[in-house]
């Protein structure tokens, strides 16, 4: 099956993309296309206009100058997970990105595309949330920045407006933090049933600071703030486990074939314990 017919514009600059987006009430941005093309092929969606942003070089770079690592929205997963600065300063993002789909999809798919698509099952949004990433969005009236806490609005819904384009995501540097992304799925190709993004700063064998994001336990990624607070001072598996019990506080998971509400909440707790332990190097 191939997509229903659409008009097509290939943008080579952000301004061209914005102009194109403004020209239609029913435009879709094509980044790497790894989420969009299967949807179009199955004709689950049939936009009037496709604005191809995969040739906009200005949004593909990764810049580690200053106190942030700023990743262009068009940087591929493969570029992100292999970037030395990302690996050194935002290791959790590299770890989560390695679990995204498969090599071919990581060669085409982009970080920005995945974040803007905001699939609740996607592995990178909770990383961005937990690490307080900052999103730069370009629109008709210029650029604006949105903190991660305000970026994810609902399933497949973000702060990016219809006439806007996500251009970059800046991550504060977490040099020296321990991190782990715990992906739990049924087969290698399957989406996360639950995923846990955990980063901890250790001080004298104790957790001094923790950042925890949860994948696929609700319509948006979830920040497990109660766990983060409870983890401060933890130095043993028992203490981590006790803190991780709060991973299901306040979450409202949905039920599907892979997990009902009870099991998802259970997984959130167990996997948070495991992810934090691995991030902290505590057994």
């Amino acid at each position: 099956m191939i997509p229903a017919a659409f008009d097509y514009t290939r943008a080579t600059t952000v301004d061209e993309a914005l102009t194109a987006l403004a020209s239609s009430d029913d435009a879709k941005i094509l980044g790497g296309g790894q989420s969009l093309l299967p949807v179009l092929r199955q004709r689950l969606n049939a936009p009037e206009l496709i604005v191809d942003c995969s040739a906009i070089d200005e949004i593909k770079g990764i810049d580690a100058g200053g106190d942030k690592v700023t990743i262009g929205a068009g940087a591929t997963h493969h570029a992100v997970m292999n970037d030395p600065a990302v690996k050194a300063s935002v290791e959790l993002l590299a770890q989560a990105t390695e679990t995204v789909a498969d090599p071919q999809i990581r060669h085409r798919g982009t970080l920005g595309g995945s974040l803007a698509h905001a699939d609740p099952r996607a592995d990178q949004p909770p990383v961005a949330l937990a690490l307080d990433a900052e999103f730069t969005i370009a629109g008709p009236s210029g650029k604006r920045t949105v903190p991660a806490s305000e970026f994810f609005i609902g399933p497949f819904e973000t702060a990016v407006g219809e006439d806007e384009l996500l251009v970059s995501v800046a991550f504060p540097k977490y040099d020296g933090w321990g991190s782990h992304y715990e992906k739990f799925n049924r087969t290698a190709q399957a989406w996360s049933i639950v995923g846990i993004a955990a980063a901890v700063r250790m001080d004298g064998g104790k957790i001094a600071e923790a950042r925890i994001g949860l994948t696929n336990v609700g319509g948006t990624p979830v920040r497990a703030t109660a766990v983060e607070q409870a983890l401060v001072g933890a130095s043993s598996m028992a203490e981590i486990a006790a803190a991780a019990e709060r991973a299901s506080d306040g979450i409202e998971p949905f039920a599907d074939e892979d997990a009902d509400v009870e099991f998802r909440k259970h997984l959130a707790r167990v996997l948070t314990k495991r992810a934090v332990a691995k991030a902290a190097g505590i057994e």
Binding site: P38, Q42, R186, T187, A188, Q189, A190, W191, E257
Partner: peptide, 16 residues
């Protein structure tokens, strides 16, 4: 049908 495509009808891949 609840899982009538290859992204939901899970046949094993090499790592499985």
């Amino acid at each position: 049908p609840l899982n009538a495509n290859l992204s939901t009808y899970l046949i094993p891949a090499a790592p499985d």
